[in-house]
């Protein structure tokens, strides 16, 4: 396959997401301009201009009309996807680490960092209520005691939010009451990424403890473990096949202090059920920070510390491959 390289960012990529149909890719990086691209040919549709800090997270709603970005400049911004105009700016006390639209797109949530004396919190807004969006006062505010949230996603049916903590714990918070419903401590280090499967029944966590784990979204039962030897920054579930892709590598700050071997920044494909690695794709020359499968499962994208987003369309070889067991 010949990947398409998207070079619209000047700094490392923090998160990439496809929209529901998969024709657009949204990319956020540590520079202050989130980008949106056509996934088919890598053409850049536009940039969202207005942030003043690193963008930690990006999400798009169900019908690709709104885009949500959370930034280290202590704001969370809502954008019109068609024109790239900033619709609302939600001022926060801290950097916004993780954000997302609920499935309906009517609710949005973001989580804040625990810095400068302010606690880590989950804020939930009703997008359809203009007064909320104007004042920046969330309708639900869930304070988190303990380690901060490093990754958060909506559960299916908008009942709860699944969060990954800095100490490796994964929790479920009820949206209405703000109570912690479940929590599991399967990981020993920070959760870098959480992603849902296509139907939302399973979620996969990527952790700095060099593993990715599969959980039942509703009960948080631990199902599978995918082991590597490097910190895992992102993991995604294929919507088409029983495949998992893991991306990671050493932290940028540690690259110079250890093995001289180049590479190790491959995207690694595992069988979902047997937890065995069956393929690798090279390309990035830095750790992969974010991975996303196209909703049709025939392509995937990876964004790396090197600032590039690489869009890969799978060869027939991939579809012909059958795991031997």
């Amino acid at each position: 396959m010949k990947p398409i390289l998207l070079h619209g960012h000047e700094r490392s990529i923090t998160q990439i997401k496809y929209n529901r149909e998969g024709d657009l890719i949204f990319t956020a990086s540590k520079d202050n301009q989130p980008n949106v691209w056509y996934s088919l040919n890598g053409e850049r549709l536009g940039t969202f201009q207005g942030h003043n800090g690193a963008i930690w997270c990006i999400d798009v709603n169900w019908d690709t009309t709104r885009v949500l970005t959370g930034s280290a400049d202590n704001t969370c911004k809502l954008w019109d996807c068609e024109t790239g105009k900033n619709l609302n700016t939600l001022d926060v006390k801290n950097a916004v680490r993780s954000c997302g639209f609920s499935y309906s797109g009517n609710l949005l949530m973001y989580t804040t960092d625990k810095t400068m004396g302010h606690p880590c919190e989950i804020h939930i807004f009703d997008v359809s209520d203009p007064s909320q969006m104007k004042t920046g006062e969330p309708c639900i505010r869930i304070p988190i005691n303990g380690p901060k949230i490093t990754s958060a996603i909506w559960g299916p049916l908008e009942q709860y939010i699944v969060t990954g903590m800095e100490d490796g714990e994964i929790c479920q918070y009820d949206v209405k009451t703000g109570e912690k419903i479940h929590n599991v401590t399967e990981h020993s280090k920070q959760i870098n990424d959480l992603q849902l499967s296509l139907d939302g029944t399973m979620c996969i966590s990527a952790s700095k403890d060099t593993t990715a784990k599969l959980f039942d979204t509703s009960t948080l039962d631990h199902l599978k473990t995918y082991k590597t030897e490097r910190p895992v920054n992102s993991a995604a579930l294929s919507p088409l096949q029983e495949h998992v892709v893991l991306g990671g590598g050493q932290e940028a700050m540690e690259v110079t202090t250890s093995s001289t071997r180049i590479g190790k920044f491959d995207a690694r494909f595992f069988n979902l059920v047997f937890e065995e690695e069956f393929g690798r794709v090279k390309g990035h020359f830095g750790p992969i920070n974010s991975l996303a499968f196209h909703p049709d499962g025939k392509s995937y994208s990876s964004g790396g510390e090197d600032g590039y987003v690489r869009v890969h369309y799978f060869d027939n070889e991939y579809f012909d491959f059958r795991f031997e067991f």
Partner: peptide, 20 residues
Amino acid sequence: GPNPSNTIVQVEEINMQIIL
């Protein structure tokens, strides 16, 4: 159309290394 300064189609082919 894609702007060549932002969008680069990699010339060399890369294959998924299959680990059997």
